[in-house]
Design a binder for these strands. Structure first.
Lengths: 146, 146
DNA sequence: CATGGATGCTTGATGTGGTCAAGCAACTCG
DNA sequence: CGAGTTGCTTGACCACATCAAGCATCCATG
């Protein structure tokens, strides 16, 4: 059942498969976030905070309106997972940083994505390298969206 | 450019890459749907309708509450993209079917996912076959989520 | 400088998507 | 027949998405 397949998959099939996987991983992420009382969007925002990020930057990263970020950060801040601090260089800007608890929480969420982790275990190192290489070639084209 | 890479990617890196690709594809899908006046969820529902599907089935497919489906189908029906028809075998059930316009619309949405299509063009047939095989091995583990 | 235009953030209005609890109609099975 | 189950809708409520408006601050140009 290995590659004796003379039939390469349709672009549509491949597309569908990528979509299914993306969805599955997203569900897994959302479920893990939910166990910690976070919505998936809140968790996604938290995941971006490796350092201080201005509100505007978060809007860009999340591909949404800036006014939207205000509310999400409000709720995260209310739970003490995130802090707004003034930017020393520009008083308009508020930089968002994860608190210790915030970092801890998002770390756990990632670790708890069991379905995704066990799925990846199905591949050995060579296969992962191959997959990584192929996926990386797909990425750039996805990004230059208008 | 075959496997002379001695460094296999971390699971975390691979995971992140899959997530990024899934997000990019989703954005592409949402944008295409938006151009036709549909939200991404509406388009996703429409994409499931290859035949008649009961409301309950849609809830399962979309992994959400049945009460949620009511509203989404309401809005699609108001635009004439979808119809509710009674199930001959069970009068409780309402089967949702896409209208001609609905099928046409979702078909166009798929076709307009330019970023995704051009990304896939970066791979030749062999690579697509390889990728498909690898991704398929990932899928089952993603699905048996509780 | 001074002032006009950009930029960063928040607020408010509005629509959609998500949950849950409750309700009704219809099926099923003892 | 009657009790329980299932399928769908409704209503209440919150999160998230957009847009338009507003305010503070920055910046560039005169």
């Amino acid at each position: 059942m290995t590659a004796t397949t003379p039939q390469p998959p349709t672009k549509a099939q491949l597309l569908e498969l990528v979509a299914a996987l993306g969805t599955a991983q997203w569900q897994d992420f959302a479920a893990a976030a939910g166990r910690h009382g976070l919505t998936s969007v809140q968790a996604k925002l938290l995941a971006q905070l490796k350092g201080p990020v201005p509100m505007r930057g978060l809007a860009t990263l999340l591909v949404c309106d800036a006014s939207n970020v205000t509310g999400i950060v409000d709720r995260l801040e209310a739970r003490g997972l995130v802090r707004r601090e003034p930017d020393p260089a520009d008083r308009r800007v508020k930089n968002v940083v994860a608190t210790d608890e915030g970092r801890e929480t998002i770390h756990r969420v990632r670790a708890e994505m069991q379905a995704t982790h066990t799925a990846l275990d199905a591949l050995d190192e060579d296969e992962r390298t191959t997959l990584y290489g192929l996926l990386e070639r797909l990425r750039p084209g996805m990004e230059h969206r208008a």
